[in-house]
Nucleic acid binder design. Structure first.
Length: 505
RNA sequence: GGCGCAUUCGUCUAGGGGUCUAGGACGCUGGCCUCUCAAGCCAGUAACAGGGGUUCAAAUCCCCUAUGCGCUACCA
């Protein structure tokens, strides 16, 4: 795999120039996990080199603007722990950080380009453009604007303006030659200018397009590195030409591999279903709601498209900051593996401090309609932590601790090779044994019940199975002795008795 | 169609010309452990897209082909 000169090797940036990078989402929808990954890489890069991570809101599309998108974005970044040094709610010396508040700036620069002969007004209607596109397609010509308005005389232009025709401002792309640039991840890229078209800079609503706004802002905000998803790569030549027209030095570019759907075919989409009819999460908030831990998702996302070495999977945030750099970013797109995320989430759940896990479980259990008390929950955590991959998995494991009674079925109660009578006798035995115990400490419970098993030469599960069902109402539960201890004498005996009664009927 | 990017186990990846009979992880399969389910441990499965070069030597460098993905808006 290629390895371009790492930024570090070009001199100690920590001394010379702190990078300024930005995440520049558009509030047209909820924060996508791919967007979150872009933000994450930018953040890691900034933190690694001690630079600034800037959040800029590219709200120049008024038709697709979504009211609650900004909140979702901000809370999503915060949930992941990606704090921004400049941007909404943080302020900063290069504001405003909402492009909708910077429209005069873009207009001014567009005027400048027109004045200097780098841009022109175009009066072509959307209808005509659509028509033109269709014809070009039919003739198998390259797509793109046919430049009809590029040759308008000053007089023609004045006439049409006088008639009140609306116009966009288009960039006057060089017709010949080539545009070359260096991508930090992909190396040198060259494209022929004849394949580039006269893209729109300013729309008829006087708002800038992405191309204009992003170039102007990156320059004005002193952005040093543009780290963004792969899908932007084809527009870099346009931006490079724009920088040239302005006489500005472009930032360094690094295009990150995009995240593909688990099948590896296409971007991640909400519409696709996973194996087992599981829902395919694509928005950050969906992962959050599904019970993934931010630190696990953070770890997982960092490792898609980037790796530290040949064996590290679980890696802390600080280690990531210490080691992250562009030279280990892979150029190829990567499929998103929900299975591996589940595994990783489980790893974090298992190693998290008990109190932390209990605290995170509390709201999840409440959402499920349970009213757990913290003491019981804390006692339960060690029993259930290795059994859950996502927070809501805990609900089924602990609900029997927080309800007054359980309702086992005779079918579950009676083991495969047992009769109803036998089962009832075993439960009775369990009742007698436990009722006579002086304490209900876990070890005492275990010692006593195991003694029964050995004494009667039973198979452990033949005895413990029915007890489990009687006491929790389920065939699958946390470890029995701990369960009995936490449930307490009163409830355990009650439930055993209830099961015995049930089997008598 | 045009333009661009990419291509190592099913998936995420290690790999910077010889140490590669290609390493790790997820998944899957089997075993151990075991009060259920898990977890853990052990073992197994499985890849350099194809073809040409360059070189004493290529997964690593170059070219072609194929395939995939992305872009092709007055969206970002």
């Amino acid at each position: 795999m290629r390895r371009y000169e790492s930024i570090k090797s070009r001199g100690d940036m920590k001394q010379e120039q702190r990078p300024r990078v930005r995440f520049a989402p558009s509030p047209t929808g909820y924060l996508h996990v791919g967007g979150a990954r872009s933000a994450l890489f930018n953040w890691l890069f900034a933190r690694h080199y001690g630079g600034q991570f800037i959040l800029r809101i590219e709200d120049t599309d008024r038709t697709r603007y979504q009211e609650d998108a900004l909140d979702d974005l901000l809370s999503g970044l915060r949930w992941l722990g990606l704090d921004w040094d400049e941007g909404p709610e943080a302020g900063g010396p290069y504001g405003p950080y909402f492009q909708s508040e910077r429209t005069d700036i873009y207009r001014r620069y567009a005027e400048q380009l027109i004045a200097e002969g780098h841009a022109y007004k175009c009066f072509c209607s959307p209808d005509r453009l659509a028509q033109m596109r269709k014809e070009r397609q039919a003739r198998k010509e390259p797509a793109g604007y046919d430049r009809r308005c590029r040759g308008l005389t000053a007089q023609q232009r004045r006439d049409r303006e006088a008639r009140g025709e609306t116009a966009v401002v288009r960039f006057k792309m060089p017709l010949e030659g080539e545009t070359r640039f260096h991508d930090q991840i992909r190396g040198d890229i060259v494209v022929q200018n004849e394949t580039l078209d006269d893209f729109v800079l300013l729309k008829t609503d006087r708002f800038p397009t992405y191309h204009l706004a992003n170039v102007v802002d990156d320059h004005l905000m002193a952005i040093t590195h543009v780290l963004r998803a792969d899908e932007w790569l084809p527009s870099v030549p346009k931006h490079v030409q724009l920088y040239a027209a302005f006489g500005w030095t472009p930032p360094l570019f690094a295009h990150l591999p995009i995240i593909l759907d688990p099948s590896g075919k296409g971007k991640m989409s909400k519409r696709k279903k996973l194996a087992g009819n599981r829902e395919a999460y694509v928005h950050l908030k969906d992962f959050r709601a599904a019970g993934y831990l931010p630190e696990a998702l953070f770890n997982f996302l960092a490792l898609i498209g980037w790796s530290y070495d040949d064996h590290t999977e679980i890696i802390t945030r600080q280690q990531l900051i210490d080691h992250f750099d562009l030279d280990q970013v892979k150029p190829s797109a990567a499929a998103f593996s929900y299975e591996k995320l589940d595994w990783m989430n489980g790893q974090y759940i298992r190693t998290m401090p008990v109190d932390d896990l209990a605290a995170r479980l509390l709201p999840v259990l409440r959402d499920a309609g349970l009213s757990p008390d913290m003491d019981t929950l804390r006692a339960l955590v060690p029993l259930i932590r290795v059994r859950i991959k996502r927070l809501p998995d805990a609900v089924d494991l602990v609900d029997s601790f927080f309800v007054p009674e359980v309702h086992p079925t005779p079918h579950d109660l009676v083991g495969k090779k047992q009769t109803v009578d036998q089962t009832r006798q075993l439960l009775d035995l369990a009742y007698q044994t436990l009722a006579s115990l002086p304490t209900f400490a876990e070890t005492d419970v275990e010692t006593a019940l195991r003694a029964v098993v050995t004494g009667r030469q039973l198979k452990p599960n033949a005895f413990f199975g029915p007890i489990r069902v009687a006491v929790t109402g389920k065939k699958v539960s946390p470890p029995l002795f701990g369960t009995i201890h936490i449930l307490g004498r009163e409830r355990v005996l009650q439930r055993l008795q209830a099961a015995i009664t049930l089997l008598q009927e």
